[in-house]
Nucleic acid binder design. Structure first.
Ligand SMILES: [Mn+2]
Ligand SMILES: [Mn+2]
Ligand SMILES: [Mn+2]
Ligand SMILES: [Mn+2]
Lengths: 221, 221
DNA sequence: AATATTTGTTAGATTACCCTAACTTTATTA
DNA sequence: TAATAAAGTTAGGGTAATCTAACAAATATT
């Protein structure tokens, strides 16, 4: 099916929201509009079009759910986004916080061959530079159990698995701390007072990080 | 300056036409419209906008000429186009006739860093897969004297330098004949009757090619 | 249950790009 | 040079994506 640049962005947004709203993979109009930076009225209009094309199912004043086709299309875009991010990071020396913006554009390039060849060129990466799983050509995606650093207890050790908050400020802060995907962390002490943590980053001297920090980082035990 | 996808295509078209119309680097409205596959009325509309933005200079019913800014912008797009074609051909194993279509999309990605990093990644290529020169970051472009194969005489030898007609049919025919950029050719005989040529391709047995063929291939003596 | 708040929709307008049909200007040709 | 042909413009209209303002429905609060 032929999708416009904009329609693709709506589908990807709905997919992302469906991951985010863990309980039910639904989204609301305002939520979607806020995510995309448009007004609710605009989102409603587009919703009608997407429904017409059988990409979402919803009723007036009801919740929005992607159809099978809609989800498949969304995943295809996410796949492109993450492959391009990996390309920029691995091959063109882009930094962590620079890849997303350009991938937002590259994800809309239409060419089945391009995506698959790119994946091959990158040697079939499983995760993007932020630790997020890259969907396969068939739409499959490794489901990984995500643990937040903030859920760990005194003495726990872990590896950084993925970034929850991918804002530039956070990514740049991580870089400053020499934290990247795969970095080993150990929790020395959780401070009950404010939820901050004393952690050791690889072999460096222990240091304190805030609760907000610990809630923005996914780790693997 | 912020240019839309469409504005970029108009500028690139004008640049291409300015190369094509060797004598004067001008273009007409109809010519431009035909090149872009739009109607003359549409081209006129866009022309007004481009003039407003100081990208072209022209008067009603007059000829169209790119301004310095307009030409610079056009060259920047051409640079991206040819770098991407090179990437697809060299790194992703795209064939000769497949690169153009995808590059038409990729040329519109906005990121100064991306272009320059891509160029570095490709090791600063001078020519794209069709033998066309790739503009440098500063806008400079090697000016090469183009000789058509059809201009050669009996006994002349040459190397294939670039492709004039980049249609899929021609590119696929060239592939079949094992002709690529750099292939050595020697003209055995020019047939006066119909302008066809007997040529030898590298060490293969001599064969005949049509005048149309010889007029579609640029060579270097 | 009544009211207030939040959420979502509709109506009407705008901008970018494109079209057809009718017209005007410039160039060619008899 | 007058008629014809070619080239270019204008007027009016369509679609996609966006907006603001006004309204309607659903949900939460008293
Ligand atoms: Mn991203
Ligand atoms: Mn996008
Ligand atoms: Mn090309
Ligand atoms: Mn283009």
């Amino acid at each position: 099916m032929m999708l416009s640049y904009t329609e693709e962005n709506y589908l990807k947004a709905l997919l992302k929201l469906s991951f985010q709203n863990e309980d039910k993979p639904e989204a609301g109009t305002n939520e979607m509009a806020a995510y995309l930076g448009v007004k609710p009225a605009t989102a409603t209009d587009m919703l009608k079009k997407l429904k017409e094309k059988n990409l979402v199912s919803y009723q007036k004043y009801g919740k929005i759910l992607l159809t099978d086709i809609g989800r498949k299309s969304g995943i295809a875009i996410l796949r492109k986004h993450r492959l391009w991010e990996t390309f920029l990071y691995e091959k063109l020396d882009f930094s962590w916080d620079e890849v997303h913006e350009v991938a937002e554009q590259l994800e809309h390039i239409q060419s089945a061959k391009l995506v698959d060849k790119l994946e091959e060129f990158l040697d079939f990466p499983e995760f993007d530079p932020h630790g997020d799983p890259i969907p396969k050509a068939n739409g499959e995606m490794p489901v990984i159990t995500k643990t937040l650093l903030s859920e760990l207890k005194n003495g726990d050790v872990c590896k950084v698995a993925a970034i929850k908050d991918t804002s530039t400020l956070f990514l740049q802060y991580l870089e400053k701390l020499h934290i990247t995907i795969g970095t080993n962390l150990s929790v020395i002490e959780v401070i009950a007072f404010d939820g901050s943590l004393n952690i050791q980053i690889e072999d460096a001297d222990p240091r304190s990080v805030s609760m907000k920090f610990a809630e923005s980082l996914f780790v693997q035990r």
